[in-house]
């Protein structure tokens, strides 16, 4: 298992699926844009502004999932000194940060016509902003701290605190009174989104995931080459 996860094997495997990803991304994106902008119905109260959901919700999910994964990898690396996980979390962090930013900005754009304000300091919105700050601190701490040992320690600290924040983001709408509505899609229990709106939502999520994979592969490749370049000097 760990042998398969070695940088060499992962690298060869990633290059194989790279071609497939570049082929399906564009057609998939066009189909889901047509679905989310034109084919899906407007909401019974919100009208057409509900279409912002199709970019807002999947990007929020990705921002949360990405940080959970980064947190897990960082802590894993801190405990077991598994070098390859550094390469993976370095490749993931910029993606998560971008989607966190997208989530906050599209949320603000959505808030204006529906709530009547761009921003509110309620628990959900504030904890999401804190998540963005965690992403930025995390990226800074591996980019600008040269000492590998120190940087992995700081990253693990940020990851631990960030994971607590992830739970606060997730459950903020249930614990406290917030302007933000509670979750519509639940893993356990009923989903309160009509089926005709779930189609574009799922498609959009798929597009974002494929896009994430594309960026991740480029970033991971760059990290591997950077590592090998250091190795060249030792030849």
């Amino acid at each position: 298992m760990l042998n398969f996860l070695s940088p060499g094997n992962l690298f060869v495997f990633f290059n194989k699926i790279n071609k497939l990803i570049t082929k399906i991304l564009l057609p998939l994106a066009i189909v889901s844009l047509v679905f989310s902008l034109f084919l899906s119905p407007p909401d019974y109260i919100q009208g057409d502004s509900v279409r912002i959901m199709y970019v807002h919700v999947p990007s929020s999910w990705i921002a949360l999932a990405c940080f959970s994964l980064i947190g897990f990898l960082t802590i894993f690396n801190f405990l077991f000194k598994f070098k390859n996980s550094i390469l993976i979390y370095k490749s993931l962090a910029p993606i998560g940060m971008s989607f966190c930013l997208i989530s906050i900005v599209t949320g603000a754009i959505w808030g204006q016509p529906t709530w009547g304000t761009f921003w509110a300091w309620d628990a959900r919105l504030t904890s999401m902003l804190i998540l963005l700050v965690f992403y930025i601190l995390f990226i800074f701490s591996y980019k600008f701290i040269q000492n590998q040992n120190l940087s992995s320690k700081i990253c693990a600290t940020l990851a631990a605190l960030g994971i607590v924040n992830i739970f606060i983001v997730k459950y903020s709408v249930d614990f406290w009174s917030t302007l933000h509505q509670t979750s519509s899609v639940k893993i356990l229990g009923d989903t309160s989104i009509d089926k005709s709106m779930l189609v574009p939502l799922t498609l959009m999520l798929l597009v974002f995931l494929v896009y994430c994979a594309l960026i991740f592969l480029m970033k991971y490749r760059a990290e591997i080459i950077r590592m090998k370049k250091k190795g060249l000097k030792r030849l």
């Binding site: 909401d43 009547g116 009509d194």
Partner: peptide
């Protein structure tokens, strides 16, 4: 001084 609308988590097409 200010009124904000709070909407629920239900989304569906108009009937």
């Amino acid at each position: 001084k200010r009124i904000l609308a709070k909407h629920d988590e239900n989304y569906m097409p108009p009937k």
